[in-house]
C-alpha cells in the first residue's frame, strides 16, 4: 500500500491534504502505541498538545482557536 502510494505522482498522504509534519506525527504516535507499559504511558505524556491560536485580520484578532487533544 505504502509503496504503491509513493509510486504515484505525489505520496498518498500529501494527496490526502497532509503535510509532512502531520504524516510523521501520525507515524510517531503509531510507534508510541506499540510500546509496552510502562513506557507507553510515559511516551503518551510527550504527546500532549495544548495551545491557542488566533488569526488576525485587519489589525484585529479573531476568536482564539484552542487546540486541545
Amino acid at each position: 500500500m505504502a509503496s504503491a502510494g509513493s509510486m504515484a505522482a505525489a505520496p498518498f498522504w500529501r494527496a490526502a491534504g497532509m503535510t509532512y509534519i502531520t504524516y510523521s506525527n501520525i507515524c510517531a504516535s503509531l510507534v508510541r502505541s506499540c510500546l509496552k507499559e510502562p513506557y507507553r504511558a510515559e511516551s503518551a505524556s510527550r504527546e500532549k498538545v495544548h495551545f491557542s491560536v488566533s488569526k488576525w485580520a485587519g489589525g484585529k484578532p479573531e476568536k482564539p482557536n484552542f487546540v486541545p487533544e
Binding site: T22, N25, S29, S45, R46, K48, V49, V67
Partner: peptide, 10 residues
C-alpha cells in the same frame, strides 16, 4: 514537547 510544537508549526 515535540508533538505540540510540530502541530503548531503545521
Amino acid at each position: 514537547n515535540y508533538t505540540q510544537v510540530s502541530v503548531l508549526a503545521d
